[in-house]
Design a protein around this nucleic acid. Structure first.
Length: 957
RNA sequence: GGGCGGCUAGCUCAGUUGGUUAGAGCGUUACAUUGACAUUGUAAAGGUCACAGGUUCGAAUCCUGUGCCGCCCACCA
């Protein structure tokens, strides 16, 4: 007999079905999977499972089936080799692994390239500190070569630590393609890029004002400068005919130009004139110019300019051709421009200058509460000295000699023309704003650790332009880049033996290294083998796969924190669009910062950080992953704390126990499943022996979940997809479906196949526990496990299994149970008191008749009698469910007054709802203008609500 | 100075193009307890969706303004 005919017969029949409690215990199965511990012990499995994945070659797209056509690539943002991974990295890994696993299961050729960044300035600082602490030596004490050796030792250790940490998170990245920014291959890419850009006129060397960190003894890019609010003194100084304001009197030794606003009536008479002025070291001759750059409201509206130590003044000096004098040296001490104070540290000199000015009566007054932003180094927090020096720059506005648009124009186009989508899209605005304001990028760093600039200077002919610090020798002739007697610098990929201009063999390589973001900017394509396409060994000993660049570039998604949108993402777009004339990635997905429970940024110094490894050890990697994925949205910061992770650990444990239960059911035992070879869900519909309403309901719900989870993941809505899955798993599947299966006994394959699908759907989120359960699923069912879950197919939904009638029917069943439970709680009927219930089922007779035992069991009833129609029995509490009425036969237990109150309350609520709907439906504007289906929907709601209201009124009568 | 984000239940947060009687987790309250799971189950309480206007038949959602919190950029002679 088919299910349909069976249902038909049930509906036809009028007999009373009375549930007998004892019937339930005959089919209760016994556990067959005692070997599985009651609570999931993540630590027991994780390492083993990771190894299985690796051994199966699951991370390497080359070993996957040839059927995979479309590629999916993520270049992992390379962690710095400075040390430990933090929760930000963990978030990055969780999200990227989710994406890669999802796409891999969807049949794509999925590649996730792992790697590490040498992080020149950060790493050098760490190692310098370490050496100082242990040996009280500076890098200069060791010398360049020895120092770099020490760095290398540190880096090797650090790399191992980080690799292990990445693996602990379950990251399914292809270790055979691991890269390091200082690998030979990548270094070659860097040099190639440098030379190409130089030849294209996009890299130049020039004397310009730069941010100088005296502690790091290096330049910093504009975006490597942080600002710190500071209260300091602001000095008003008498300077000839005017009073000028400054916070830095120690820079003012050689100031000779007063600048005022052209419209400032106070100073108009002075413009264009010259004055002899008594100043720090005696008399100087000052001239006055007018320029609109001056803000008349600022200070006194008059200022003197110090071109070598202020960005704005430098621009002015260039504009008017004023001399540029270095006052503060690269070492943070005064130059000979300070006369008798040469060699003095800045702070000391300031005090001395102020003292002298005081003596000379040149101080008008001092503002003690001047608040301004002090620029500091983003690495070591040392105040920045803006100063002029000879550095290498990338020209962002210039068109390449070989044609095409400027770097800036290319980068803007890539996003504006939607070749790159930024998620969330509000960061488009931030990106454009930054790009619009971008100045030439200073790429040379006076560091030892990093990519050495591939430029050689000829020393044979004459003292060359070596030493960016030429200023130290001749502070007043800064604008000579190299004079005509000098051979031009030699810029090329590989070292050479002799100067091509003069043949001299006395060559010296530029001592500086490149900004770490220069190499990072090439990351998506240098890791794939550019500029060499053939098989070739890279420095780390891994082979560069042939055609990787062609197969996997542009990459699919760049997933990283929004805090490095400028540092890195923008640079990659700039460099890649120039080098390859294609975008580095199609989508940029920006995650937020991981913060502590109080919303504070986690940091080592504050000690408020949570170590991912501790959390993994305590709660398991799956729980940590969930806690970083669910509950947040892209671009917004997430708070993370112990209890939160514990909550997700609870869910993982729930999933585990769902597995234990499912696998303990007789349908999964081997004698039942001898012929079963696989479990693609859905197929069982045709094979199953008994199909119940619950089966059809769960199958239908599953289809919807597959659709929404797939769609959400494809749209990067990982949190939403996860919540949807959790609700389905814990609510629909565990709380309802499994409970009903216990009652129905004799479970069919729906149980197994739905569980099978659940494992697949959860796998990208919780790879470990699902893989363990997947193994047990196959073992228990005596099935051959064709693949690991990591390589299993992503579920597809099938429309034909969406069964609205069953969903509606099941919803009524659920409501019946909930309404009874609710009444029991309201009337404080103890759980031990088993109630009798009579249902006047009316049009839903067959539904209730067929499922009376389920209602009885779930609602904890002694008996459940289903009739078509029934008079209200005495002492019965009536409950309304759809068109049916449930009578709780409570005898004399219930307080009549209380019951009347309960019903009155419900009526009141219902009346408000109904009248609301009526108001809406009687509004012609609504019925006329709203879409027909919305109107219809509201009308349907109204009918149901009205009916319910009527029934409630009857109850009161 | 320019820009961005947040403000939704006690707490942490969802809420896809405007149409639900506004949701989840944690916490709280009450009840339950030997076979999947107490890392559990059942039920409940709890919200004028920051505020003020506007657009619309209809606004947590769109527009304008205000307030508070946070962030980014620029700049400070």
């Amino acid at each position: 007999m088919s299910v349909k005919t069976m249902l038909f017969h049930l509906q036809k029949s009028l007999f009373l079905l009375v549930f007998k409690e004892s019937a339930f215990y005959t089919n209760v199965p016994h556990m067959t999977v005692e070997q599985l511990e009651k609570a999931y012990e993540a630590a027991k499995y994780e390492e083993k499972i990771y190894k299985e994945w690796e051994d199966a070659g699951a991370f390497n797209p080359d070993t996957l089936t040839k059927k995979r056509k479309e590629s999916f690539t993520i270049a992992m943002p390379p962690p710095n080799v400075t040390g430990q991974l933090h929760m930000g990295h963990a978030a990055m890994l969780a999200i990227e692994d989710l994406m890669v696993r999802f796409e891999r299961m969807r049949g794509k050729k999925a590649l996730w390239v792992p790697g590490l960044d040498h992080a020149s300035i950060a790493t050098q600082n760490v190692v310098e500190k370490k050496i100082w602490k242990e040996e009280k030596k500076t890098r200069h004490d060791l010398g360049r070569e020895e120092f770099l050796k020490r760095v290398d030792v540190f880096v090797q250790e650090s790399k191992n630590v980080i690799r292990t940490q990445i693996k602990k998170m379950g990251a399914s990245c292809d270790w055979s393609r691991e890269r390091y920014t200082l690998d030979e291959g990548l270094s070659r890419a860097v040099r190639t890029m440098f030379v190409r850009m130089y030849e294209d006129g996009l890299i130049y060397r020039g004397n310009r004002i730069v941010n100088w960190c005296t502690r790091c003894a290096s330049t910093l890019a504009d975006d490597e400068v942080n600002y710190r609010e500071e209260r300091s003194r602001f000095y008003y100084l008498k300077y000839g005919p005017v009073v000028i304001g400054t916070a830095r009197p120690e820079t003012k030794f050689l100031d000779k130009v007063i600048v005022v606003h052209p419209d400032d009536t106070r100073y108009m008479e002075f413009v264009g004139k010259k004055f002899d002025v008594e100043w720090i070291d005696g008399k100087v001759q000052a001239s006055v110019v007018a320029d609109a750059i001056v803000d008349p409201a600022m200070g006194t509206g008059a200022m003197t300019i110090t071109p070598a130590h202020s960005f704005e003044d430098f621009l002015l000096a260039q504009k008017y051709g004023f001399a540029v004098h270095q006052i503060i040296g690269m070492d943070g001490k005064m130059t000979e421009a300070a006369g008798g104070m040469a060699g003095m540290p800045v702070a000391e000199c300031r005090a001395k200058v102020v003292e002298r000015l005081q003596q000379k009566g040149l101080i008008d007054h001092i503002d003690e509460n001047y608040v301004h932003n002090l620029s500091v180094c983003y690495r070591c927090d040392t105040p920045i000295q803006p100063l002029v020096s000879k550095q290498w720059f990338v020209a962002v506005d210039k068109k390449p000699k070989n044609g095409g648009k400027s770097l800036k124009a290319r980068s803007i186009d890539a996003v504006r023309k939607e070749k790159i989508t930024i998620v969330p899209d509000r960061f488009n605005k931030t990106y454009f704003q930054w790009m619009d304001n971008l100045h030439d990028w200073c790429i040379s760093r006076q560091l030892w650790f990093g990519h050495r600039i591939p430029v050689w200077y000829c020393k044979g002919n004459q003292e060359s332009g070596i030493g960016n610090h030429g200023t130290e020798k001749s502070p007043n002739s800064l604008f000579i880049i190299h004079d005509s007697k000098t051979c031009p610098p030699i810029v090329q990929i590989d070292p050479i033996k002799a100067c091509p201009s003069c043949g001299s063999k006395e060559l010296e390589q530029d001592p500086d290294t490149l900004d770490t973001w220069f190499s990072a900017g090439l990351w998506t394509f240098s890791t794939l083998g550019w500029p060499m396409n053939q098989s070739q060994s890279s420095g780390s000993g891994h082979a560069t796969k042939k055609n990787d660049l062609q197969t996997f570039h542009p990459t699919s998604v760049m997933e990283t924190g929004y805090d490095i949108l400028f540092f890195w993402v923008a640079r990659m777009i700039m460099m890649t669009t120039y080098a390859l004339d294609e975008v580095p990635f199609k989508t940029v997905y920006l995650h937020g910062l991981v913060r502590d429970k109080f919303g504070k940024k986690m940091s080592k110094s504050k000690g408020n950080g949570i170590d991912p490894l501790d959390m993994i050890a305590k709660y398991g990697a799956d729980a940590v992953r969930l806690s970083l994925i669910i509950g947040g949205t892209p671009g917004n910061d997430v708070r993370l704390y112990d209890e939160k992770i514990a909550g997700f650990r609870n869910f993982v444990n729930k999933l585990w126990n769902i597995g234990r239960f499912v696998l303990s059911q007789p349908s999964s035992s081997s004698e039942r499943s001898e012929s079963r070879s696989s479990l693609p869900a859905g197929r069982q519909v045709d094979q199953a022996r008994t199909i119940t309403l619950a089966d059809r309901w769960i199958l239908s719900r599953l289809q919807r979940v597959i659709v929404s989870v797939t769609d959400d993941c494809a749209q990067f809505r990982f949190s939403q997809a996860g919540e949807r899955l959790r609700d389905f798993t814990w609510g629909d599947f565990a709380d309802w479906y499994l409970e009903i299966k216990k009652i129905e006994g004799d479970p069919n394959d729906f149980l197994l196949s739905t569980f099978d699908f659940l494992l697949r759907l959860w796998h990208p989120y919780t790879p470990y526990v699902t893989e363990v359960l997947w193994e047990h699923l196959h073992e228990t069912c005596n099935m051959k496990r064709e693949t690991l879950l990591i390589l299993a197919e992503w579920p597809k939904s099938e429309k034909k299994y969406i069964d609205i009638a069953s969903e509606n029917a099941f919803a009524l069943l659920q409501k019946s149970v909930m309404v009874i439970r609710n009444a029991r709680a309201i009337y404080r009927i103890p759980a031990a008191t088993k109630l009798n219930v009579m249902i006047a089922a009316r049009a839903q007779f067959s539904l209730f008749a067929e499922n009376q035992s389920i209602i009885a069991r779930l609602a904890n009833l002694a008996s459940c009698t289903v009739t078509k129609e029934a008079e209200r029995p005495n002492d019965a509490v009536p409950l309304s469910v759809g068109k049916s009425v449930i009578y709780l036969l409570v005898g004399g237990i219930v307080d009549v007054v209380k019951e009347q109150e309960r019903i009155k309350g419900e009526i009141e609520k219902q009346m408000a709802y109904v009248s609301n709907l009526e108001k809406k439906l009687s509004n012609e504007e609504f019925t006329k203008k709203a879409p027909a289906e919305i109107v219809e929907q509201e009308r349907a709601k109204w009918e149901v609500a009205r009916e319910e209201l009527e029934r409630l009124r009857e109850f009161l009568a």
